[in-house]
Nucleic acid binder design. Structure first.
Length: 225
DNA sequence: TAAGTCAACGAGTGCG
DNA sequence: CGCACTCGTTGACTTA
């Protein structure tokens, strides 16, 4: 899944170890659409293109002039929904990339340039901000779901390991404290899951500096998701 | 091929 | 003024 919508949403995730470009395989392991439909991002191409492919390409409808014309006609049917032309969308996207909000002057200038009402420009930016934020939230949600999944898995694995160790019921080896040379009680001992060596639990080694987060090894770089 | 479904999108409204 | 929420329209796609 690309992070681009038909209108070219550009998303940046504020999630560690993630960039929007990694989305193609990083997200969407489970299709949680609920209704069983595929979650393929459909691309609404050519929606601003006149169906006939005719010449009035630039600003098909919704321009200031046409809008007033439709209101004036006062027909029984409501005015057609505005679909921005490709060129209008492109220019709006371009200014959005530069600035996510517009000053009144910029709004006015853009409206003139696009032959739209300032209100339309304003609404476009508003919707664009909202939908960018929504996409971002969705991506973050996916990321957190994956985090949760892998942590759950690791938790299960560790619990199994604990059970296995308990099942072994081997007599705990005698470990002497480094200073007093007294044997440590079994409750003060833990086993390193990586090197499988028995060592004293952090509480029993209170004299050590707090720098090392893990009782076993220096902190390894966090796994990238 | 018509009808149904879905996502995208423009726009209205109320609130802080 | 920006935002959240919402609705109606539209076009692409699916299905019977």
């Amino acid at each position: 899944m690309g992070a681009t919508s038909p209108s070219g949403l550009e998303l940046t995730m504020a999630v560690p170890g993630l960039s929007s470009s990694s989305g193609s395989e990083g997200f969407g392991c489970n299709n949680s659409n609920g209704n069983g439909n595929n979650t393929v991002m459909r691309v609404d191409l050519d929606m601003n293109q006149p169906a006939s492919g005719g010449e009035e390409e630039e600003f098909p409808m919704g321009s200031v002039e046409e809008d007033e014309e439709e209101r004036g006609a006062g027909g029984p049917h409501r005015p057609k929904k505005l679909r921005l032309s490709k060129e209008q969308s492109r220019l709006l996207e371009e200014s959005f990339r530069l600035n996510h909000t517009l000053t009144p002057k910029q709004k006015e200038a853009l409206a003139v340039k696009l032959k739209l009402r300032p209100r339309q420009v304003e609404v476009w930016f508003q919707n664009r901000r909202a939908r960018t934020k929504l996409k971002q939230t969705e991506m973050e949600c996916e990321y957190l779901k994956r985090c949760f999944g892998s942590l759950t898995e690791e938790n299960r694995r560790l619990q199994r390991e604990v059970e296995e160790l308990r099942a072994m019921r081997v007599a705990p080896p005698t470990v002497l404290t480094p200073h007093s040379r007294q044997p440590l009680p079994a409750s003060a001992l833990i086993m390193c899951p990586r090197c499988e060596r028995v060592t004293a639990a952090p509480a029993a080694r209170a004299a050590r500096p707090p720098a090392a987060a893990s009782p076993f090894h220096p902190r390894r770089p966090s796994a990238a998701f």
